[in-house]
């Protein structure tokens, strides 16, 4: 009985530790029906956008097409090149990167995973050297049900928000993709003359 009690205590302790750790790492959704656009870690305003603007992709998922559609809708002026090499990126002052991996997208672009990784690393070096403003857009959000979605939220959204908080980078979270219109309009819509 004494041995059983010790084992039980150990199991309970492990469960408690796991619960605490899970509670600390579990992602909490910021947006809601009432608050559809939430920005943390300060503001990112239109005066920080410098022309010319480039939209590119890292990972070649379909998200870059959605971003292109959004930008067209708000009437922004930009160049669209999902496979822009680092030398091309260097010519721009603001770069919006749609992140998301797709083997189909890579195949269609004729790029291997290794080549895309090398391109991404070269772009990161270029933006740092040239002090280019970078906006990272991740449009493939999770459904909000189920343990798998929760895992995704913890892994992906958690990574973004934790990293942004740590580096004090403004991050804007959206309830749905259409809510991006509000944000992009404020940043990129041409000012009426």
């Amino acid at each position: 009985m004494k041995r059983f009690t010790r084992i039980l205590a150990l199991v309970l302790a492990l469960a408690a530790i796991t619960a605490v750790m899970s509670a600390e790492t579990a992602y909490t959704f910021r947006t809601s029906k009432e608050e559809r656009v939430v920005t943390e870690n300060g503001e990112f305003t239109a005066d920080l956008i410098v022309d010319p603007v480039l939209i590119t992709s890292i990972g070649q998922s379909a998200d870059v097409s959605m971003l292109d559609a959004l930008m067209k809708k708000v009437g922004a002026t930009y160049t669209f090149d999902p496979i822009a090499p680092a030398e091309e990126v260097a010519k721009y002052k603001t770069v919006i990167i749609a992140s998301g991996a797709s083997s189909k997208g890579l195949g269609a672009a004729g790029i291997s995973q290794e080549q895309e990784t090398a391109r991404a690393e070269a772009i990161m070096k270029t933006v740092e050297e040239n002090e280019i403003t970078v906006i990272l857009a991740h449009l493939g959000g999770p459904g909000r049900r189920g343990a798998l979605s929760d895992t995704f939220s913890d892994m992906v959204l958690g990574k973004f928000t934790d990293f942004a908080a740590e580096k004090e980078i403004p991050i804007t979270l959206l309830a749905t993709i259409a809510d991006a219109m509000t944000v992009l309009k404020d940043l990129f819509a041409p000012v009426a003359q």
């Binding site: 559809r36 189909k104 195949g107 459904g143 309830a175 749905t176 993709i177 259409a178």
Partner: peptide, 13 residues
């Protein structure tokens, strides 16, 4: 306000 759950994907080569 939640819109439609539509997503886009590329046709596989």
């Amino acid at each position: 306000m939640d819109g439609y759950p539509f997503k886009l994907d590329l046709s596989g080569a």
